[in-house]
Design a binder for these strands. Structure first.
Length: 421
RNA sequence: GGAGGGGUCGCAUAGUGGUCUAGUGCGGGCGCCUGCUAAGCGCUUUCCCUGGGUAACUGGGGACGAGGGUUCGAAUCCCUCCCCCUCCGCCA
């Protein structure tokens, strides 16, 4: 959420920022509601002050003047009316504010869509094959480690079952990534709930705007997490962190659930895009002045997974038009998959500034005695499992159809080669 | 799911309609005293909204788990919900 004071004082600055994103926003309506709100508030508070004073006097007198009580009753009615009006105006205002995206950082390249994103670096050479590399869905079926038919039998399209070495590989990747971030990058491991309350979704900015993408339990109003970013953001909701607490680095594994109302036919083959997938998520709470450099380090931490696995990848900076709703600046990491011949997005690392902190009311105290202020939040996949799974199968496939296990995964896999058992 | 108990300032507690501007103790901060330490003494201790001021600051309103209600006036009375504890039931 943006600071209403920023909109009030610099509407043009905000308008220009949204233009860079290719979005427009009802700023005039917002400013108008904000004025209404403050006008009503002023009247109500004046009346309340008056009532407080009179009530105090009444408390001291034994014989209450009936006329005065009648006056106060009338005043009370006006206050009740104003309260209702303020409540109405505020909820209208809040609903509009919650739907405004964040303002891109000044150094984000301006662009229209993904075409205008900028590749900032590439690492690793694409493997050379003496044969035609197969896509992972063929490898998975041949090796009997991915079962698409039974996935569909159990849960419908966009679900699959991992079996034998496939299931083991999934678990190996999760453990490897968690261990790497805990031991080498200084993150604290968190195991959060996979279902959260509505206000958590508002805090992370998945609600109200993106309700369509979420699974929701109507009976108890539980929301299934589309990413561990949601529970991690809300770890410190409504808290004031004492001086010296920041920065906080969290890493969490969760399953992720997304409705994905994609056009039929797109990304339907294989395990690239499902309704349920696994992800290891990196999350940081930082002081505002450090968040930019913390983003760079976050990207490096995520890249490190690619490096250890020995899979070629590139880092892409998103342009203003492709930036996510809450982000002020983002980098994607894409792994090369030689079978399906595609750059696969395995991570998206974002600095959200104080956007989520405002929504979730997460503050910190810079110094003892200092006033609390909003901290900055950053998130990034470290990494998303299915895509890494794909890249790994496709990059490490051998002429005989087996998969070589990368060095770092051997202790987790208990085997050097994935083959049909 | 059932029965009972509870949720008040960082922590612990008091407060059953106006004297609460939420008290007291502990912890924290500042000062005094002291050869030093301890003890003692004094002062101080939240957050949000809104107005005034460059600012230190200051006027007003609000917050006692959350939301409603009764009342001139609610921590206190009424209703709904949430969370925690104890016991019972059920269960991986």
């Amino acid at each position: 959420m943006l600071d209403i004071k920023l909109i009030r004082d610099n509407p043009d600055l905000v308008r220009q920022a949204f233009e860079k994103r290719g979005e427009s926003a009802p700023l005039d309506q917002i400013i108008n509601l904000d004025e209404q709100r403050r006008r009503l508030l002023h009247e109500m508070e004046t009346l309340r002050a008056q009532r407080n004073e009179v009530s105090k006097e009444l408390g001291k007198i034994a014989d209450k003047p009936p006329q005065l009580i009648a006056d106060m009753r009338k005043l009370g009615e006006r206050v009740t009316y104003l309260e209702a009006e303020i409540c109405r105006v505020e909820s209208e205002l809040e609903d509009l504010l919650l739907r405004l995206p964040n303002i891109p950082a000044a150094d984000v390249p301006v662009g229209k869509d993904a075409q205008d994103n900028i590749t900032v670096r590439s690492r690793g050479e694409p493997a050379q094959f003496s044969f035609t590399p197969l896509p992972h869905w063929e490898l998975g079926e041949k090796l009997d480690i991915i079962d698409f038919q039974r996935g569909a039998k159990l849960s419908g399209s966009r679900f699959y079952v991992l079996k034998g070495h496939g299931a083991r590989l999934q678990r190996a990747l999760i453990n490897f990534m968690l261990d790497l971030h805990i031991k080498e990058h200084g993150y604290t491991e968190i195991y959060p709930p996979f279902m959260v309350k509505r206000e958590c979704m508002v805090g992370s900015s998945n609600l109200p705007k993106f309700a369509d993408n979420l699974y929701h339990d109507e009976v108890d109003d539980f929301w299934f997490v589309p990413t561990a970013e949601v529970p991690l953001t809300n770890m410190h909701r409504d808290e004031i962190l004492p001086p010296g607490t920041l920065p906080l680095y969290y890493v969490a594994y969760t399953a992720c659930f997304r409705r994905e109302k994609m056009a039929a036919g797109k990304d339907t083959r294989g395990i690239k895009r499902g309704h349920q997938f696994d992800k290891v998520e990196l999350y940081k709470f930082t002081e505002p002045e450090n968040s930019d450099q913390e983003l760079d380090r976050l990207v490096k931490d995520a890249e490190d997974v690619c490096g250890h696995l020995g899979i070629p990848y590139r880092v892409v900076q998103l342009c203003t038009g492709d930036l996510g709703f809450a982000a002020i600046k983002s980098f994607d990491i894409e792994m090369w998959a030689p079978g399906c011949e595609e750059w696969l997005e395995v991570s998206s690392c974002s600095n959200c500034g104080d956007f989520q902190a405002r929504r979730a009311n997460i503050r910190y105290r810079p110094e003892p005695k200092a006033k609390p202020s909003f901290l900055n939040t950053l998130n990034g996949s470290g990494l998303a499992l299915p895509r890494v799974f794909i890249a790994l199968l496709e990059n490490y496939q051998q002429a005989d159809g087996t998969i070589k296990v990368p060095e770092v995964l051997k202790p987790y896999m208990g085997t050097e080669v994935i083959k049909r058992s």
